[in-house]
């Protein structure tokens, strides 16, 4: 295996045109998989030093985050805490200090685990992924970027430059909970995130995303529209519980059974709505 630290995007595109090449950024997924023999690249392209892949800014109504920006820098960024507080909250629960000091959100997304925690807030904030190839570059909606476990629409020869999300949810209430085996360093058995805009006791807008209960992290748009406009009354949490357990089709695996996952998501959803019910509106 060869290793190359690429210093700009054109060097990266050159490297990506070679067979057997693979991008490494923080390496928290890539190095684990290489050691397990699951990945055998012949050329490792380290993108951590490419200037254009770094930084957090607000531009044209979007919060934009460079692909190589560390999770720890994203979590502490005042811009992120202001415009996407749920993202900062979720990152605090991703891995550990040491993992976040290497790991990146873009790596989390391209890795495309059904349990990717970073995907939950990004889906809720309607994030887009900037995909750059030799011939063109485009913004792809994260919802259509994931195609299956470990799979995305990224083709060989392409890389991710940045992620962005429209701002304008300041004041929305947030919820995120993942269930795993221990507090830190937990791969979610099931996770649920919400963005809620409540006005005069009614749901103006609700966005729901779940992890580890489908081949990819995903939004539950049908339930979102069923609940929009509903009064947040005492009957709602239990009704919502039934709605959500009916809407997901998790699988059983070594970490948990399908029934357990369905129950967990149902309970989390009911709990989230109940907690907003008891808060002064």
């Amino acid at each position: 295996m060869r290793y190359q630290r690429v210093i700009n995007e054109s060097e990266l595109l050159d490297g990506l045109s070679q067979p057997g090449s693979l991008i490494v950024c923080g390496g928290t997924d890539v190095i684990v998989k290489m050691r397990a023999g699951m990945l055998q690249p012949t050329l490792l392209l380290d993108v951590t030093q490419i200037e254009s892949l770094h930084g957090i800014q607000v531009d044209e109504g979007h919060l934009e985050i460079g692909a190589a920006t560390l999770e720890s820098d994203i979590m502490h960024s005042p811009l992120v805490n202001q415009h996407a507080p749920l993202l900062a909250l979720v990152l605090r629960q991703l891995g550990s200090v040491q993992i976040r000091n290497r790991g990146t959100l873009a790596g989390n997304i391209v890795n495309a685990s059904p349990a990717a925690d970073g995907a939950i807030p990004l889906l809720l904030y309607e994030a887009e992924v900037q995909v750059v190839g030799p011939a063109q570059e485009q913004w792809v909606r994260l919802e259509s970027f994931f195609t299956g476990p470990g799979k995305t629409t990224l083709s060989s020869g392409e890389f991710v430059r940045a992620l962005r999300m429209p701002i304008g949810t300041d004041g929305f209430r947030t919820f995120f909970h993942k269930v795993g085996k221990r507090n830190a360093l937990t791969i979610a058995i099931a996770s649920l995130g919400l963005l809620l805009n409540i006005e005069q006791g009614a749901i103006q807008e609700i966005r729901i995303a779940v992890g580890s209960v489908a081949p990819t992290p995903r939004r539950l748009r049908k339930i979102e529209s069923q609940l929009t406009g509903r009064a947040l009354d005492a009957a709602l949490p239990l009704e919502a519980r039934d709605l959500i357990t009916g809407a997901i089709a998790p699988i059983s695996d070594i970490r948990a059974t399908a029934a357990y996952r369905r129950n967990v998501i149902g309970d989390l959803f009911a709990r989230a709505l109940r907690s907003h019910l008891t808060q002064p509106l």
Partner: peptide, 21 residues
């Protein structure tokens, strides 16, 4: 975390970093 070192001032797991990085 047994392998924790400071890399450019940040705590990292040295088992998850290539030396060349």
């Amino acid at each position: 975390g047994a392998c924790t070192v400071l890399l450019d001032g940040k705590a990292v797991n040295s088992c998850l970093v290539l030396a060349m990085q």
